[in-house]
Amino acid sequence: MGGFDVPEIDYTPYSDRQLAAVPLAVLALALAILLGWYLLTGAPVAMGIEFAGGTELTVDTASDRAEIPAAFDAEPESVQAVQAEDDRYIVQFASTDESALSEQAAANLEPAGDGEVVQSVTSTSAAFGAQAQRTALLGVGAAFVGMSVLAFALFRTFVPSVAIVVSAFSDIVIPLAVMNLVGIPLSLGTVAALLMLIGYSVDSDILLNNSVLRRGGDFTESVHRAMRTGVTMTVTSMAAMAVMAVAATAFGIDLLSSIGLILFVGLAADLLNTYLLNLSLLRWYVHEGVAR
């Protein structure tokens, strides 16, 4: 083998409880953050303008960043510079009066070059946002239930199936908590990433369960076999997502950067959940659960 190989981890010194404790503690912490956020703000995650309502303008202007808020009657929620393009800023408002905001931008900001000041407008009314929230919740819920049913159908035994469902749940909850911590609001892109995570996260769990339960042989050997493949898969995807997140952020393409970032965090959480949580449940099941 060449450049890098997946290290063989010796799990034998640790009990099942010790192994499961780490991911469960992280999950508990993540849930605590979401609960705290819910108690403080009324929603478990910060909603982006696509869900809460508001307006986002992309402007090309020679004016300084500090002058931008003064151009508008409404106070911007945020002003973000786009790295790849000088003089381009993404400005967000809670107001949904996009025509007034566009006019103010065109009137009060100095154009950069010959182009229009306002390059892009996205405006969502509060009612439309609330509708999108319900749709998104329904979508994520349906996907999660569908995935759970499929997991049970594939393995037809309780513990391994539950292990898959619990780690997928944790894979979604941990990035949500991280989003709150680093200040990424929930947007259409992040919802897509969360759904994608359900698909990605289950891959490595199925691989592990399949290797241990269907292939037989020594437990440690089966785990290592699955890990060699699974970790390679996850690390490859993480690398691709990290590059996508960095490139898209530099270019100012929000949708791609949030998908990349959330998938990166979620896949890291998946390594933890698959190879500590799912593994400990499987080991308990193989050694003790089957005997009962």
Binding site: T58, A84, E85, E98, G115, E116, V118, Q119, S120, V121, T122, S123, T124, S125, A126, A127, F128, T236, A239, A240, M241, A242, V243, M244, A247, A248, F251, G252, I253, L256
Partner: peptide, 30 residues
């Protein structure tokens, strides 16, 4: 109660290039 989305053709043209570059970079990484 609407939703409005608008992009200037010039910016859209840049997005085409940028998303191509992003895609190619991701594939190279993989």
């Amino acid at each position: 109660n609407d939703r409005t989305f608008s992009v200037e053709p010039a910016l859209a043209e840049q997005f085409k290039l940028f998303s191509l570059v992003t895609g190619v970079l991701s594939v190279l990484t993989v």
